[in-house]
Design a protein around this nucleic acid. Structure first.
Lengths: 154, 154
DNA sequence: TTGAGATAGTTGCATAAACAACTATTTCAA
DNA sequence: TTGAAATAGTTGTTTATGCAACTATCTCAA
């Protein structure tokens, strides 16, 4: 018999969606209220470029857990808004390097502050230890379902 | 200073998406492999009807954490597939009662088994206590961001 | 009694997701 | 050396989301 056979239906709802959707909506709202006109999905791409600029699209796929078509289209939009720019890799013409523009870099501080604020709202009255457990469990869930994923990268 | 000021950027990624996306993709794949041609979003609607049949669309919104247009369209699709049926409320003509058909009821056992199986895959090597903490924290996150939400309903 | 406001549901528009099928380039082994 | 397989990226199709604006019905207080 399954170890987790109790109330798994409910568990599905918990892990899948409700909290993450609420957080996403709130961050989107906070961005909008600040007059910043990007979606959270676009923000996520920028976030990874702020951590390390000039990544390939494939690398952005790995880091954002999205598939290649999704990244292609997100980058299309961000390039149209002049927040980043595609350029060819010197030695490998298959690869697009995606680099921030000044406008893209300019969004970093404001939006990270908004994201932090959003997480503060979300995590009121949740203590550090509990947060660590949630992080570890959700990472474990991910790894269980993606055996060959890049290790521990969040 | 914020209580949760450590690595909140990473936290965002954890709570928002990566695990829930992985679970959703896996469940979708398991459904597909079993030859069952519905999306997980559609499945979620059916799930709540299996728990309690003949709910209003508004009630389905509350229970699935989706907005009204989303539910309208999911129900459009499910009605087209003859898995459920809209009917008018006797006393209040604004309300659509959404009830399962025999075909809709027939999917219950098979797909719940697949969902349980999926959650077992996802939660390998995660113990009960940790799961309870994750449930509690994510519910807390949701409540923090949705002050007037229906209590504890998962 | 009536009409303003609340509630239930629908439609339109923009964005994003998954998946399959496609092109271009590179790698590597026979 | 060359060509099959691998890798990087794009396009098409279907489905779903959020938000705003809309219609229909109901409630309740002046």
């Amino acid at each position: 018999m399954s170890v987790n056979q109790f109330k798994r239906g409910e568990l599905y709802s918990v892990i899948n969606g409700m909290a993450s959707t609420a957080v996403a909506r709130r961050l989107q709202k906070n961005l909008r209220n600040a007059g910043i006109d990007i979606t959270i999905e676009q923000w996520t791409v920028l976030y990874h470029l702020w951590k390390e600029d000039c990544l390939s699209q494939q690398e952005l796929c790995n880091r954002t857990y999205r598939d290649k078509p999704s990244i292609t289209r997100l980058i299309d939009k961000l390039e149209k808004q002049k927040l980043l720019k595609r350029s060819s890799h010197k030695n490998d013409k298959r690869i697009n390097l995606v680099c921030l523009t000044d406008a893209g870099r300019a969004l970093q501080n404001v939006t990270l502050e908004l994201a932090n604020q959003t997480m503060d709202e979300a995590l009121q009255d949740v203590n550090k230890e509990e947060i660590e457990i949630v992080k570890r469990v959700l990472q474990k869930v991910y790894d269980n379902l993606n055996p060959t994923s890049p290790e521990g990268s969040i």
